[in-house]
Simulated assay, not measured.
Amino acid sequence: MVITGASSGIGLATARSAAAHGARIVLAARNGDALTEIQEEIRGRGGEAIHVVADVGRREAVQAIADAAIERYGRIDTWVNDAGLSIFGRLEEVSDEDHDRLFQTNFWGVVYGSLVAVPHLKRSGGVLINLGSVASDIAFPLQGMYCASKHAIKGFTDALRIELDEEGADVAVTLIKPAAIDTPFPQHARNYTDHEPKLPPPVYDPQEVALAILSASEHPQRDIYVGGAGRLMSAFQAVAPRTFDRIGRTMVGQQMRDEPPRHRSGALHEAGDDGEVRGDHPGYVQRRSFYTRAALHPAATGLLMTAGVAAAAALMRGGARR
Results as ranks from 00 to 15, higher is better:
residue 191 N to P: 11
residue 121 L to S: 00
residue 118 V to W: 03
residue 106 N to Y: 01
residue 81 N to C: 11
residue 116 V to D: 04
residue 134 V to N: 06
residue 205 D to N: 14
residue 185 F to D: 00
residue 153 I to Y: 03
residue 100 D to Y: 05
residue 110 V to R: 15
residue 183 T to L: 00
residue 166 E to A: 04
residue 91 L to Q: 05
residue 199 L to I: 12
residue 179 A to V: 11
residue 196 E to W: 12
residue 100 D to G: 10
residue 131 L to D: 08
residue 111 V to G: 06
residue 126 G to M: 01
residue 118 V to Q: 09
residue 145 M to C: 07
residue 192 Y to R: 14
residue 115 L to T: 14
residue 187 Q to P: 03
residue 197 P to V: 03
residue 91 L to C: 04
residue 155 G to P: 15
residue 165 D to P: 09
residue 153 I to M: 07
residue 118 V to K: 13
residue 115 L to H: 12
residue 193 T to V: 15
residue 178 P to D: 00
residue 150 K to Q: 13
residue 137 D to C: 04
residue 156 F to P: 13
residue 172 A to S: 15
residue 144 G to A: 14
residue 151 H to V: 11
residue 127 V to Y: 00
residue 179 A to F: 07
residue 176 I to L: 03
residue 83 A to E: 03
residue 104 Q to N: 14
residue 154 K to R: 15
residue 142 L to F: 10
residue 119 P to F: 00
residue 143 Q to M: 13
residue 145 M to S: 13
residue 200 P to D: 04
residue 165 D to C: 03
residue 79 W to S: 08
residue 89 G to R: 08
residue 87 I to K: 09
residue 148 A to S: 12
residue 197 P to F: 01
residue 110 V to H: 08
residue 104 Q to Y: 00
residue 190 R to Q: 14
residue 195 H to R: 15
residue 159 A to W: 03
residue 167 E to C: 02
residue 191 N to V: 09
residue 123 R to E: 06
residue 119 P to H: 01
residue 171 V to T: 04
residue 188 H to I: 08
residue 150 K to M: 06
residue 92 E to S: 14
residue 151 H to R: 15
residue 162 I to D: 05
residue 206 P to A: 02
residue 134 V to F: 06
residue 126 G to S: 06
residue 116 V to A: 01
residue 179 A to I: 07
residue 162 I to Y: 07
residue 75 R to W: 06
residue 204 Y to V: 12
residue 90 R to S: 11
residue 76 I to W: 02
residue 192 Y to C: 02
residue 76 I to D: 00
residue 138 I to W: 01
residue 151 H to K: 15
residue 205 D to E: 02
residue 141 P to K: 13
residue 177 K to Y: 07
residue 78 T to L: 03
residue 175 L to S: 03
residue 93 E to H: 10
residue 157 T to F: 01
residue 206 P to S: 04
residue 86 S to Y: 02
residue 120 H to G: 05
residue 120 H to I: 10
residue 153 I to E: 02
residue 188 H to R: 15
residue 146 Y to V: 10
residue 169 A to I: 08
residue 165 D to V: 09
residue 156 F to G: 10
residue 137 D to M: 14
residue 199 L to M: 12
residue 187 Q to T: 10
residue 177 K to P: 05
residue 94 V to D: 00
residue 108 W to G: 11
residue 193 T to N: 07
residue 107 F to M: 12
residue 94 V to M: 02
residue 189 A to M: 04
residue 159 A to L: 13
residue 184 P to Q: 00
residue 76 I to R: 00
residue 107 F to K: 10
residue 108 W to H: 15
residue 88 F to Y: 14
residue 96 D to T: 12
residue 88 F to H: 10
residue 99 H to Q: 12
residue 112 Y to V: 10
residue 206 P to L: 00
residue 161 R to C: 10
residue 93 E to L: 02
residue 142 L to I: 13
residue 198 K to S: 03
residue 187 Q to N: 06
residue 125 G to D: 08
residue 97 E to A: 11
residue 96 D to P: 09
residue 93 E to Q: 08
residue 167 E to K: 15
residue 206 P to T: 08
residue 84 G to K: 02
residue 162 I to N: 11
residue 94 V to I: 14
residue 103 F to C: 06
residue 86 S to G: 15
residue 117 A to E: 08
residue 85 L to C: 01
residue 136 S to E: 04
residue 171 V to P: 14
residue 194 D to W: 11
residue 187 Q to E: 13
residue 95 S to R: 11
residue 85 L to M: 05
residue 139 A to Q: 13
residue 96 D to R: 14
residue 128 L to Y: 01
residue 102 L to P: 06
residue 133 S to I: 07
residue 196 E to R: 15
residue 137 D to A: 12
residue 146 Y to H: 15
residue 157 T to M: 07
residue 144 G to P: 11
